[in-house]
Design a protein around this nucleic acid. Structure first.
Lengths: 193, 193
DNA sequence: GTTTTTGTTGATTGACGAGTCAATAAACTT
DNA sequence: AAGTTTATTGACTCGTCAATCAACAAAAAC
């Protein structure tokens, strides 16, 4: 029953299934067969399109990072002032598309993958650098020389809130996560003297 | 060559080897044989003392959390005022005994383990609750009603700084990690009006 | 000095899983 | 209609690894 032009559809289905499977299992120790079954195909086909399990994981990770980037860009698109752009980056980081149970769990696992797989490591570094650079850029006019430090702190705090959400039971509380990070930002933006 | 009273020595050696092996591999996908070899014994003996790989991991995780707790308590022992105690908890969190490359990497992996293993989950929750409760207690006289929120923020930030250190290349920079968290604390402790 | 307890391992079992391959089938090409 | 390309899978290979077991060794107990 070969429909032509199946490749992109199959690849997308596998990426989606990978995130779901890893997220649900809470572990990278999932089999290609499990992923393939969830994506509605044989494991042989998964290997046919991706070549190896490693490549499947990398594609899934790229997908997560791409989605994340898109959500931040989306949030940024309506913001004009430095402060509103800053807040857009933060709230974009917790957009409902990314801040989901399985996505967070998959994210955590990909973090671990980056310890082993150089390409995964590279991907994560690119994301981190871009985030920090964006934050720094908007922070400069607001906190001057402290921009670098605040950008790093914000980045770390976002990661921390993420992984804590991975461990919490029940659905991740978006408003609550946002509140923690926003309050940090508020403190830093307060005029002091 | 059976030396008597070997059990506690063997167990300790296995726990140490587990942390090192997981830390170096950057993954939980290490074999019992690898761990046992590093600890200088056969894999059969590792199974003899721990029963299963799962139990070995749990013992290693308990060890990490115990060490962490001890370092925080140690730092606390010399502090008297609320603020100095608060700072002791923070700097204790980055004590050189805990804030090591392999320990951090192992920590991250155990975080993942907590997604799968209920007992690991429980252990992590106990640690988180205790940390938050300690922080809240010292924060109360300093920031009043904000104590709860600040305690949560600090906890998340510490975790975030930890996992970022796991990804950084080179030795983890203790002073730098401490600086990020300390500055957060400084902002929160500033008198505002 | 024999029995029991504690320590220890090599060899084996049994399961599982990544990746390959040969075969089949439907579409497109000429 | 014959040939080519794309899609698809069941069956198989080969390696790996957790866990078990039988056997051996030394100390303790009796």
């Amino acid at each position: 029953m070969p429909k032509l032009g199946a490749e992109p559809i199959r690849r997308a289905a596998l990426v989606k299934a990978t995130i779901e499977t890893v997220g649900e299992a809470g572990s990278l120790e999932v089999t290609v067969a499990q992923i393939a079954r969830r994506a509605g195909m044989s494991s042989a086909l998964a290997h046919h399109y991706f070549g190896s399990k490693e490549q499947i994981f990398l594609a899934a990770m790229r997908s997560i990072l791409t989605l994340y980037g898109a959500e931040v860009r989306g949030a940024l698109s309506t913001a004009t002032t430095a402060e509103s752009r800053l807040r857009a980056i933060v709230s974009g980081s917790f957009a409902p598309g990314s801040f989901r149970r399985e996505t967070i769990s998959a994210w955590l696992n990909f973090y671990v993958l980056a310890q082993t797989l150089p390409e995964a490591h590279r991907l994560l570094r690119v994301y981190q650098r871009r985030l920090r650079s964006n934050l720094r850029h908007e922070l400069r006019p607001l906190v001057g020389a402290r921009a670098e430090a605040v950008a790093r702190g914000l980045g770390a705090l976002i990661d921390g809130v993420y992984i804590r959400a991975a461990l919490a039971d029940g659905a991740p509380d978006r408003a609550y996560a946002l509140k923690i990070v926003t309050e940090y930002l508020d403190r830093e933006l307060e005029v002091r003297g």
